[in-house]
């Protein structure tokens, strides 16, 4: 009964999968290499135009800074929260995981409509600045991924023993958290962070409806006049996600995998 070789039908399905996944990527690459004058392959003109566009640098920098800010806020907020819940209030855990499902269930388009409405009266240093409003929205968006990653991390270590050991050696809460707990959940925290990076770098809906110029809306603007550049940018965007996911897999090697799916559709 045991097979030594791959089953023929499995080969067929895997080939179908490879074709469906790879063709759009290869086509995008070829498309981005078309010359603007002749519409033929191959020229690097689209790439050189992008590199010389200062808007490209400013939007991608903004997206990257937002990603870092979101990761920092999320870690500061959720690491102590999840730690405390695991340690002292395990009965709250189901409540928290139910709350973490909310951003999953609520489409970004609904979230942004609600948030724009909620913060309408907020001071302009918050409402009109990407670092205020947009980062807040992204922390909410990142909450489930961060939470489930951290939750899995905390579950895999012996929290009580570590805390007690640390405290009987005279450490306070702060020292315990930063020098004992954090190194033990590093993989989970990094996993959540890379997912968050991938989400924020690709998020279009919220940025576009609240009229902030981050990277994905920039691709959209470019596409209106320069399709080849847009293809090059799409490919770049794919590489960013690829890098984040590869990092996720590498840091988590040999350990239970954190959630791998983020939603930026």
């Amino acid at each position: 009964m045991r097979r030594r070789w791959i089953a023929p039908s499995a080969v067929v399905w895997l080939v179908v999968a490879a074709a469906f996944f790879l063709i759009p990527l290869i086509a995008t690459l070829l498309f981005s290499l078309r010359s603007i004058q002749t519409n033929k392959c191959c020229s690097g003109a689209a790439y050189s135009l992008i590199v010389h566009d200062h808007q490209f640098w400013s939007t991608i920098r903004l997206s990257f800074q937002l990603a870092l800010e979101t990761i920092a806020i999320s870690l500061l907020l959720f690491v102590p929260t999840v730690y405390w819940v695991h340690l002292k209030l395990p009965r709250l855990r189901p409540v928290l995981s139910l709350m973490a499902l909310v951003p999953f269930v609520v489409p970004p388009i609904v979230l942004v409509v609600g948030l724009l409405n909620l913060y309408k009266g907020a001071p302009s240093w918050f409402y009109d600045k990407p670092y205020g409003f947009l980062a807040t929205a992204y922390v909410i968006l990142a909450f489930p991924y961060m939470f489930f990653a951290l939750d899995a991390g905390f579950r895999s270590i012996d929290l009580h023993t570590l805390t007690e050991a640390s405290q009987s050696l005279g450490a306070g809460w702060g020292t315990t958290l930063t020098r004992v707990i954090l190194p033990n959940i590093r993989v989970a925290a990094l996993g959540g962070s890379f997912l968050t990076l991938a989400i924020v770098m690709g998020e279009f809906t919220i940025a576009s409806l609240s009229a902030f110029k981050t990277f994905p809306p920039y691709i959209q603007v470019v596409n209106e006049s320069q399709p080849y550049e847009a293809a090059a940018l799409s490919l770049l965007s794919f590489l960013i996600v690829w890098a984040a996911m590869l990092a996720l897999v590498l840091v988590g090697r040999g350990r239970p995998r954190p959630a791998q799916v983020a939603a930026t559709r």
Partner: peptide
Amino acid sequence: VAANFAGIP
């Protein structure tokens, strides 16, 4: 990667 590669790109 593909499940996360969505949206505008």
